[in-house]
Simulated scan of single mutants.
Amino acid sequence: MFKNTLRLECRKAICNPFFFLAVLIGVVMTFFSLIPMAESFARDMAQHRQFSEEFGPRNPLMQMESLFNHWIGGEGSSAGASDYFFLFPLLICIPYGWSYCSERRSGYIKNMVIRTGKMQYYLAKYVALFLSSGLAMTLPLLINFLAAAMIFPAVKPDPSYMTAYGIGASSFLSMLFYGKPFLYVGMYLLVDFIFCGLIACLCFAVSDAIKNPIAVTLLPFFFLLGVHYFCDSFVYRKVEVMYTELSPMHFLRPIPMVYDTSGLVIFVWGSVLFAVTFFTAVIRRGRHEIY
Rank of each mutant, 00 (worst) to 15 (best):
I210N: 05
Y121K: 06
V23K: 01
W98T: 04
M249T: 11
D208W: 06
I167V: 13
P159H: 07
F20D: 00
G117Y: 11
I92T: 07
K211N: 07
V127Q: 07
V191R: 02
V258S: 04
G168R: 02
F172T: 04
L190F: 14
I255S: 12
P220F: 01
A281W: 09
L189N: 05
T280A: 15
R43W: 07
K156E: 13
F68M: 00
P256H: 12
M249N: 10
G134Y: 09
D208A: 01
S77W: 15
A22N: 00
A275L: 14
A124C: 10
S170D: 12
T138K: 13
G56S: 11
H228Y: 13
I266D: 03
Y184T: 06
S233A: 14
P157L: 01
G26I: 10
K238I: 06
Y165S: 08
R43G: 02
A205N: 13
F195V: 03
F182M: 13
F19D: 05
E53S: 13
A128Q: 07
L202C: 11
A22L: 00
T163R: 11
T277D: 09
K12P: 02
Y122F: 15
G56R: 14
C101V: 03
F234K: 06
M62F: 06
F152E: 05
C93Q: 05
P213C: 06
A148P: 02
L139S: 03
S132I: 05
Y243T: 12
Y96L: 09
C196I: 01
A136E: 06
Q47W: 11
S99Q: 15
S33C: 11
F195D: 00
A200H: 04
G186K: 07
F41N: 12
F182W: 12
D158L: 04
C203G: 04
G97E: 08
V185E: 10
P60Q: 03
C203Y: 08
N59T: 05
T244H: 09
V155M: 05
Q50C: 04
F18M: 10
L87T: 09
W269C: 00
S133Y: 11
G107K: 08
S102N: 07
P213I: 09
L123N: 11
D260W: 03
S77N: 14
F130Y: 09
V265A: 12
S262V: 03
Q63P: 00
E9V: 02
L34Y: 12
F86Y: 11
C196H: 11
F172M: 08
V23T: 12
N212K: 04
K118H: 01
I214P: 01
T138A: 12
